[in-house]
């Protein structure tokens, strides 16, 4: 199947086409106002005018399309089913997750991911039930953007991507690499596979959006500048996620083996 026919790749191409004509740059404040200049540099958002336009478009789409869909999903589909869907989607992400764990040189995380896949695919009935978590193999987030961060790649200026939302060059590249690296992007062909891929994609959107219904509504209600608030939250959250991965130095010694002394650190 040529790459452009894959749903996610098609979408990525469409986004790039959309983005082109919209490029505009923020005007830095006058140099005689050093504090304003410091603020401008700290915001690190040279494409702010473009980003804001894309935020508005996304927000509009969200209001008329995604939010109602997520509300319906929440109202119509019972909670246990939604959890099952979430777990299946999470299980499908295992190959990419494992690849990143390995590239990040996090053996314990890679072990967790492997055990989660083996346990949840079998005992958990193709991933519907997260049995592994109860057995001591918790899930964790990772992606190639995070891997790049651990390799020392800086995030770069803020980007608000059409449809995808807050990002930056590093995380956007990481997202693309994850899509290409995902075996499910390439496995099989034909209408059925395309339909399955689109279903996975659509369900992922519903699953994620329905989890943030309250959080997003409350931000939009209480923030004076929701765009800037989302920008700040994205960055802080990302930083915390990266630090959590960086500091995850749990050993890989089996529980029945004498445990090495854990060195306290701060």
């Amino acid at each position: 199947m040529p790459p452009a026919h894959h749903p996610r790749l098609t979408l990525a191409a469409m986004l790039l086409l959309l983005l082109g004509p919209l490029l505009g740059c923020a005007t830095p404040p006058p140099a005689n106002d050093p504090e304003a200049v410091a603020d401008f540099n700290e915001a690190n958002d040279p494409l702010e005018p473009t980003n804001r336009v894309l935020y508005k478009i996304n927000d509009g789409l969200d209001t008329i399309l995604l939010r109602p869909a997520a509300l319906t999903y929440q109202a119509v589909v019972p909670e246990p089913v939604r959890t099952g869907v979430h777990n299946i989607l999470s299980n499908l992400n295992t190959p990419v997750q494992l690849g990143n764990d390995v590239l990040e040189a996090k053996p314990r995380r890679a072990g967790d991911t492997t055990m989660r896949f083996l346990i949840n695919t079998t005992l958990g009935v193709v991933g519907i039930f997260d049995v592994a978590k109860k057995l001591g193999y918790p899930n964790h987030d990772t992606d190639f953007g995070l891997t790049l961060a651990l390799w020392g790649v800086p995030d770069g200026p803020f980007l608000f991507l059409p449809v995808l939302g807050p990002s930056n060059p590093r995380d956007a590249v990481g997202r693309g690499v994850d899509i290409v690296a995902d075996p499910f992007t390439w496995v099989g062909k034909g209408a059925a596979v395309t339909a399955l891929n689109w279903s996975r994609y659509g369900l992922t959107v519903l699953d994620e959006r329905s989890q943030y219904l309250d959080a997003i509504a409350s931000i939009k209600k209480t923030a004076l500048d929701p765009y800037a608030t989302f920008r700040s939250l994205y960055r802080q959250h990302r930083r915390a996620e990266i630090e959590a991965a960086r500091n995850d130095d749990r050993g890989t010694v089996p529980v029945w083996f004498p445990q090495p002394q854990t060195t306290p650190k701060n």
Binding site: P138, V163, D178, T204, Y234
Partner: peptide
């Protein structure tokens, strides 16, 4: 949380502001 790559919520890939169980398991308070 799942699948960050595909996390395409419209305004918010804005990930995981409030409910990110995965982080809970990590050694926050050493």
């Amino acid at each position: 949380m799942i699948n960050r790559r595909a996390s395409i919520s419209l305004i918010a890939a804005l990930p995981a502001l409030l409910t990110l169980p995965a982080l809970l398991a990590l050694p926050v308070g050493v």
